[in-house]
Design a protein around this nucleic acid. Structure first.
Length: 517
DNA sequence: TTTAGGG
DNA sequence: CCCTAAA
């Protein structure tokens, strides 16, 4: 419309000629040292005061660059959206057409530093580093210090394999100028929406400083999270965003919608949140800070597909860990509420096997110890403890039963939590509910045993008996002393816990039974 | 969160 | 062993 339109009258040849610079000697005397991908590049070295000393051959003197040709962005208020900038310096130097001493310097600098992942820097301190949000850096640019002229036509030309989704770049310049990164072409596009001064094509850009005022409010808008530009990688195109003066507050920066997390993950997250305070906090933290690792969405999506649920530690409570990259790690995982992927037959077979094992070897000796117990636990759980909705059947060993009976004798029926804490502290797979259930089953078993005895069906049935008779007798004794809730309410109640230990009473327990025989 | 009880 | 209601 005004000077802006005038400035765009220059032919593309002119523009190309004027602002194309090649670095013939960039690689000649400077070697490249590959840097780890996660290296974060500092930008302080860009601010070294002796730039001009080192490179007197100025290609672009920011101070003398003609503002009538290109926009002077001194005191330039702008909004910059850099989610993640990962620019390969190889391609950067090859097609970078920024004119400028500093640009050259920076490229050289990066070369000399041997970093592969470098810098998009046309302004004083506009740099992107790997996995780093530099919005703040950009925002903190002192307007006065940004004495630079900037002309577009920056070709970032990312190489093969370079992930375009790592370049979620949106530059919205106040005053109707917008800078966008064309991920398809790898071009930085600068355009004006205020008039006819739009750039021709994506390779040239002209910015006019007349529309710029020094007092333009700095508008910065964060994307909701850094992964927003990653999730829809296929359709994520940098757009030139119109920017109107009256529209400063709601700059329509490219909105990228978050991909909804997989349902399974959501469910698991909810589950984790409800089960562990630590997990809760971790999840919250991960949500709140919009963790940068989520930027690797495509990675963790892949992992999520293929990731098996990996057992994390030996304990049951430790549970499983499924770590999509950058997602909250479940720290403790309940063994409950798993989705059962295993056919029932397999489980039944395993249960039978365990029972057979017990038939053969268990209860023959009272000395069955924790090792056997743990071994049993391991057998029952390692294969699928991550997936099964139903907890694996872990046969109660004799030692466990004895501990349970002893606990009941000490603390009474119904105080399962205490029994668990004091008797089953080492076996994390037995919950208080398990103890309660087991006690209930023991009561049933003891009752059945009585009936069997009365029917005189001895021998083989006794062999099939899971719990030895002595233990069941003890259970009956305790049941008489500590009536199981509701079942034995009619029975007499004994308030004082028995102090006798299991072994001391096993010898005469049958005598203690009032109803037996 | 623990316990009781049904399934 | 799971699930849920109740305390």
């Amino acid at each position: 419309m005004n000077a802006a339109s005038k400035e765009t009258m220059m032919t593309s040849n002119q523009a190309t000629k004027m602002f194309t610079y090649e670095f013939p000697d960039v690689d000649s005397d400077l070697s490249i040292f590959p840097a780890p991908e996660d290296d974060v590049l500092g930008v302080e070295h860009f601010l070294q005061p002796d730039y001009n000393k080192c490179f007197p051959g100025s290609v672009l003197d920011f101070n003398t660059f003609h503002s009538h040709k290109c926009l002077s962005i001194e005191n330039f208020s702008f909004a910059v959206e850099f989610d993640q900038i990962k620019i390969d310096s190889e391609s950067l130097h090859s097609s970078l057409t920024l004119e400028g001493e500093r640009t050259k310097q920076e490229v050289r600098d990066e070369k000399s530093k041997g970093t592969d992942d470098v810098v998009c820097s046309g302004i004083n301190k506009l740099s992107g580093t790997v996995n780093r949000q530099i919005t703040d850096d950009i925002f903190n640019l002192a307007p006065g210090s940004c004495n630079a002229s900037f002309l577009g036509n920056v070709d970032f030309g990312y190489p093969q394999g370079f992930c375009t989704t790592d370049l979620g770049v949106d530059l919205s310049f106040a005053g109707g100028h917008n800078v966008a990164f064309d991920q398809k072409d790898g071009k930085l596009m600068i355009s004006s929406s205020t008039g006819s001064s739009g750039c021709s094509g994506s390779s040239t850009a002209c910015l006019n400083d007349e529309n710029m005022s020094d007092d333009r409010p700095v508008k910065r808008k964060r994307l909701s999270s850094c992964d927003s530009s990653k999730l829809n990688s296929e359709h994520n195109e940098s757009k030139i965003v119109p920017f109107n003066e009256g529209n400063k507050v709601e700059t329509p920066v490219t909105e990228k919608r978050l991909r909804k997390p997989p349902r399974r993950y959501s469910e698991e997250s909810i589950e984790q949140k409800s089960r562990s305070n630590f997990k809760k906090s971790a999840l919250k933290a991960s949500k709140d800070k919009s963790l940068p690792s989520v930027c690797h969405t495509h990675q963790w999506q892949k992992k999520l597909k293929a990731a098996p649920i990996v057992p994390k530690d030996k304990s049951f409570n430790g549970g499983c860990i499924q770590v999509p990259f950058g997602l909250p790690i479940e720290e403790g995982h309940s063994t409950k509420k798993r989705i059962c992927w295993e056919p029932e037959e397999i489980k039944d077979n395993r249960i039978l096997c365990i029972k057979d094992k017990n038939d053969v070897e268990s209860f023959s000796a009272e000395s069955e110890d924790e090792n056997t117990e743990d071994e049993c636990v391991t057998k029952g759980n390692t294969t699928q403890k991550g997936n099964s909705r139903r907890k694996h059947h872990i046969s109660w060993t004799l030692s466990e039963v004895m501990k349970l009976v002893e606990g009941v004798s000490e603390y009474g029926v119904g105080r399962w939590t205490e029994i668990k804490r004091l008797q089953f502290s080492s076996s994390s797979h037995r919950t208080s509910v398990d103890l309660k259930d087991k006690w209930r089953n023991l009561l049933k078993a003891s009752d059945t045993q009585l009936q069997n005895r009365r029917k005189v069906v001895l021998g083989r049935k006794q062999a099939l008996q899971q719990v030895p008779e002595s233990v069941l007798c003890r259970v009956r004794e305790l049941a008489a002393i500590y009536p199981y809730p509701r079942e034995n309410k009619s029975k007499e109640t004994c308030s004082a816990p028995t102090t006798s230990s299991f072994k001391s009473t096993t010898s005469n327990m049958l005598v203690c039974l009032p109803t037996v025989m």
